[in-house]
Nucleic acid binder design. Structure first.
Length: 474
DNA sequence: ATGTAC
């Protein structure tokens, strides 16, 4: 594999063999995965072989190895030119994403005396960990279907939230084209008892404080963010339902691929044309799972609001809710032509520029808020979309693992990690010691570098840096 | 990420 530095923070994997386009990696020398030893770059090159892919197979600054596609990967295919959709390009946690809330009238100083009590209440109020738990326990499939087709909008219609929340959700809280009937029976079964739950792994709910502001005007317009503002960040996805949808459709596409004459270098890249029965079935089910993920974050929002209202008497305003595991049908200019594309973002955040028609009016001047969650002991970022993003309006989604879960847990005690975090003033409410150890900050890349390189590479610009005060984890 | 394999 030949990798050349095109411009600062932009590396090109030369097209060779079956690659239809080059690979483009946005990174510093420090963040760039090892050209000889790291499987992530091989995956970037593999994705470049997909039928219909346009411009390049992109990797964000937090890229790392994943199932078929790298995590931190972006690939767009031309729908009218036989372009494919691939479940591996979305990932198992369909519509995994981040939601940021801000307390309009509470700062760090006001919260500190009540932080312990707030964390104890959240510990009780936030369902998490493996298995069947949730704010809602749906009794029948008809109501689950309303979640799948109505997303966060359905939750708000049921009284769980306020209409303004929807203005600050990607797609106003519901992605069109969902078909509850396209979701398999096993997926439905797994989804019934998990609506309004965090899950485990890197998912979290954090009470945070703004510790740095890079653009005060933008931070204010996004929702009154200023240094010292208390925030709540929720990072979770579509739980077992999304996982099962991915599993079902990878299997289906793996069997069907041959009929379309598609050959891929890795079976985990199983795909079929967007315009095929299998492609359309996957998109209908994926969209339903995405709506489940949005309803999930909406319900958790209401659970946190109840806690903060009761304990400190503050409300919470939604800054934004954005997915980082999704394939979307979008129109982009490619080589001077408007083209209908299937944009896969897997561990990559959509990042719309100012004045994009999909932004709510009050964000038109500043661009889309981009939410990048970090790790427990470090920081998270708010960025804003910029014009002329080279990667179909996408940027990084998190710190990006450098150690596997197994590596991270080996020789690390969850208890010791919690004590260390509490010494730093970060309260931890977990349910699994091993789960905690797997998420130690050292298992991840440097989030400050990821945000910085996202900005230097022209993917987004920094608005604010948030640090955790309390962590609720599965 | 995930009823951590069917």
């Amino acid at each position: 594999m030949k990798v050349v530095e095109e411009t600062p923070y932009r590396f090109r994997i030369e097209r060779e063999g079956a690659m239809r386009v080059p690979g483009i990696v946005f990174a510093s020398h420090g963040l760039l995965p090892d050209v000889h030893g790291d499987k992530a770059l091989v995956q970037v090159a593999n994705v470049a072989t997909l039928p219909g892919i346009v411009r390049a197979s992109f990797a964000m600054p937090d890229v790392h190895w994943g199932y078929g596609f790298p995590i931190g990967g972006v690939a767009a295919t031309d729908v009218e030119a036989g372009g494919v959709v691939s479940p591996g390009g979305v990932g198992f946690d369909i519509s995994c994403g981040v939601r940021l809330l801000v307390a309009p009238d509470l700062d760090r100083v006001g919260l500190m005396p009540r932080l312990q009590a707030v964390m104890d209440r959240l510990d009780h109020a936030i369902p998490r960990g493996m298995g069947q738990k949730g704010v809602w326990r749906l009794l029948d499939r008809a109501s689950l279907r309303r979640v799948l087709e109505g997303g966060a909008r359905y939750a708000v219609e049921q009284g769980h939230g306020v209409p303004r929340d929807l203005d600050r959700c990607e797609d106003r809280g519901v992605l069109a084209g969902a078909d509850g009937a396209a979701v398999g029976d096993r997926a439905l079964e797994r989804g019934l008892g998990q609506v309004g739950s965090l899950g485990s792994g890197n998912h979290f709910l954090e009470v945070q404080v703004v510790d740095q502001v890079y653009d005060a005007g933008t931070a204010a317009r996004m929702g009154g963010l200023r240094q010292g503002s208390v925030c709540v960040m929720i990072h979770c996805g579509s739980r077992g339902l999304g996982h099962q949808v991915c599993t079902d459709h990878v299997r289906q596409m793996d069997k069907a691929m041959g009929r379309y004459g598609i050959v891929v270098p890795d079976r985990q890249l199983a795909c079929t044309p967007v315009r095929s029965p299998e492609g359309e079935a996957y998109l209908a089910a994926m969209t339903a799972a995405a709506n489940y993920g949005r309803a999930n974050r909406q319900l958790l929002t209401e659970a946190v609001r109840r806690v903060l209202t009761a304990e400190v008497g503050t409300s919470l305003d939604l800054v934004y809710d954005i997915s980082h595991n999704l394939a979307k049908l979008e129109v982009h200019d490619v080589d001077g032509r408007r083209r209908s594309l299937c944009v896969h973002r897997k561990g990559a955040t959509r990042s719309l520029p100012p004045h994009h028609p999909d932004l709510p009016g009050d964000l038109a001047e500043v661009g889309q808020p981009v939410l990048i969650p970090g790790t427990m002991g470090t920081a998270s970022y708010v960025l804003a979309g910029v014009a002329d993003n080279p990667a179909f309006c996408s940027t990084a989604h998190g710190a990006g693992r450098v150690q596997s879960r197994h590596q991270a847990a080996r020789g690390t005690s969850g208890r010791a990690l919690r004590s260390q975090l509490e010494t730093q003033g970060i309260l931890v409410r977990g349910v699994s010691w091993r789960g905690l150890a797997e998420e130690k900050p050292e298992a991840y890349k440097d989030i400050d570098a990821v945000a910085d390189i996202s900005q230097r590479a022209g993917l987004a610009r920094k608005v604010a840096r948030l640090v955790p005060l309390g962590v609720v984890k599965g």
